[in-house]
Design a protein around this nucleic acid. Structure first.
Length: 567
DNA sequence: GCCGTTTTCGGCCCGACTGTTTTCAGTCG
């Protein structure tokens, strides 16, 4: 049972209802499906807590079907519809260019039920005869099918491609063909993973500019090309849309293409309720354009405070902006140091000296060196004695050239919740991050009790990457997070926001949830080599996406202030 | 089927591109 399976059921119900010509219900089912597939916790937890109808797009009817699914593993309405239309919508939907109408048309005329049937029909050139299809469509489908397997759900962690994206934009700017070029979309919102790259530009020579873009060395294929919109496939494994708009519409276009979709839809509803029309070209009263040149102008005309892109997820920011209650988010420049790094004393690639000089170079004021403790053998964890020696080396470096190093450890929390180093060693540390790395596939209570025992030890400064998820590899471990947050509040233990791209942990929605408790957050890059220090920026982005302010984040404190926080 | 400063009925975001068709339906974001 999973959120995704349930979401797929609702997507399929939506597709079938659309085929049958039913109005609006498909919209409702899709909306619910989207909400469910992007939920942070398991859907059955929402049911247990009586919060099903708090999920956006879930009302009485869909709520009943969710309960039916949780209790029986099935949704009767779905089973009925599937009997009538035995089509594998889940996989066919993934094929670019196929929507419910075309899928049904293929089924009705050729009996195509799944991807294999489709492959065969395409290879026998059967599609070109069908009404509404043609040779071009058949050829496009043939191309798409060749890559359909690897292309499904290929979201990439933001941190791994942010620099490439920024380089691409710099290259466009250097061409001299554009007036403005900016990154939009989920990259601008600093979402933890991105599915494609959106770039927005203005130009006096749009055709020439588009041609330049399609010929760039980073481009491997051109998917769509028009005067205002061009989509390409990039060699570093992402699709990229470039849109060119007029300068006078740049603000509303930035707003529109930054999203997210739900945020935009809500904005348009607000515009409608004020007798206005909002689109990517501006705000219009009748035919008269009343805003659109700047993004601030768009929000302010709708009676809203300006919202930093990181907040635009439709998780309450619009409502807060209406009553001027948006938080003043922690700024990237306010982060003075990195509180999670490794050297080659455990599993890092570089020496203490190299790490320190690189950190200084990029403008940090301090770092905590937090190597692994003894029991994490695969990472060459240090025992009490080796930490003692390392800490002497750190002390010798300290305070020189306006830079400081905190003596730290990423400490293994053992199977029974006890700690991996002696109390004496831990008391000599400036920053202790407790972590679960091993024996983590236990039940919820076992995991939660183990972590809480460590939190109550009085020896921890923070919990490292609290959910332990690895994006694309493994789901979060089974934990009662509210109990964990509560224990952190009681025992003055911080929560880490780990900016390493495949961790991004805590995730932003849980940061927001945790901040309802009186807890502080520590940011760390989890650097294992010099180039990783840049991931501190991503941890800051998650903090901002989780609505944190300067006072919530201890990396805004100076070294002297942090060591005074000692346990 | 959902939802509410349009509030328990009557709306539901909006435009670009493509391919097929010759004025538009389907798909996508």
């Amino acid at each position: 049972m999973s959120n995704k399976q349930l979401a797929d059921i609702f997507y399929t119900i939506a597709d079938i209802l659309e085929i049958e010509g039913v109005n609006w219900k498909p919209v409702a089912y899709r909306k619910a499906a989207l909400s469910i597939s992007t939920l942070s916790g398991d859907i059955s937890d929402y049911y247990k807590n009586g919060k099903l109808e708090r999920i956006e797009g879930v009302g009485e009817g869909i709520g009943k079907k969710i309960i039916e699914y949780i209790k029986t593993g099935k949704v009767e309405k779905y089973e009925e519809l599937k009997k009538k239309y035995p089509i594998d919508f889940d996989s066919l939907r993934q094929v670019r260019g196929l929507g419910p109408k075309k899928i049904f048309s293929l089924y009705k005329s050729l009996g195509i039920k799944n991807i294999d049937d489709l492959r065969e029909a395409v290879s026998k050139h059967k599609l070109r005869e069908l009404e509404g299809f043609g040779e071009k469509t058949e050829a496009n489908l043939s191309n798409t099918l060749a890559s359909v397997v690897e292309s499904t759900e290929k979201r990439v962690p933001l941190g791994f491609m942010l620099e490439s994206a920024e380089n691409l934009v710099s290259e466009l700017r250097r061409s001299g063909l554009f007036n403005k070029v900016e990154i939009a979309g989920s990259t601008r919102r600093m979402k933890e993973t991105i599915g494609d790259l959106d770039i927005l530009a203005t130009s006096n020579k749009p055709e020439e500019a588009m041609r330049f873009f399609t010929k760039m060395k980073e481009v491997s294929d051109v998917l769509v090309s028009g005067p205002t919109k061009t989509s390409v496939e990039l060699k570093f494994g992402l699709n990229c849309d470039l849109r060119v708009v007029e300068d006078e519409s740049f603000g509303s276009a930035m707003q529109y293409f930054t999203g997210n979709k739900e945020h935009n839809i809500k904005l348009r509803r607000i515009a409608l309720s004020k007798g206005l029309k909002l689109n990517e070209y501006g705000i219009f009263r009748g035919d008269k354009k009343v805003a659109g040149e700047s993004e601030e102008g768009v929000y302010s005309y709708l009676g809203l405070d300006y919202m930093p892109p990181e907040l635009r997820e439709d998780t309450g920011e619009i409502e807060a902006a209406q009553v001027h209650q948006l938080p003043k988010l922690v700024q990237y420049e306010e982060i003075l140091g990195d509180l999670h790094t490794h050297t080659n004393d455990s599993d890092g690639a570089d020496s203490l000296g190299e790490l320190v000089s690189e950190a200084k170079k990029i403008g940090l004021k301090y770092i905590a060196v937090t190597n692994h403790s003894y029991s994490l053998r695969v990472s060459k964890g240090l025992d009490d004695k080796r930490f003692e020696a390392l800490n002497r080396r750190i002390e010798a470096l300290n305070g020189k050239e306006n830079f400081s190093v905190l003596k730290g450890v990423e400490l293994e929390i053992l199977k029974d919740g006890s700690l991996d180093l002696s109390s004496k060693t831990l008391l000599g540390m400036d920053f202790v991050i407790g972590a679960l790395h091993q024996n983590i596939s236990n039940d919820r209570k076992t995991n939660t009790d183990r972590l809480i025992k460590a939190i109550e030890s009085g020896k921890l400064s923070a919990i490292a990457h609290p959910t332990d998820r690895i994006i694309g590899e493994r789901p979060p471990i089974n934990l009662d997070l509210d109990k964990v947050f509560e224990a952190c509040e009681k025992n003055d233990v911080m929560l880490e926001i780990n900016g390493y791209p495949t961790r991004s942990d805590l995730p932003f929605d849980l940061v927001k949830r945790a901040s309802k408790y009186r807890v502080k957050f520590s940011l760390g890059s989890d650097s294992h080599r010099l180039a990783h220090l840049r991931f501190l920026r991503l941890a800051t982005a998650i903090a901002r996406r989780g609505w944190l302010t300067k006072k919530d984040v201890i990396n805004t404190l100076t070294y002297e202030q942090i060591i005074k926080l000692k346990r």
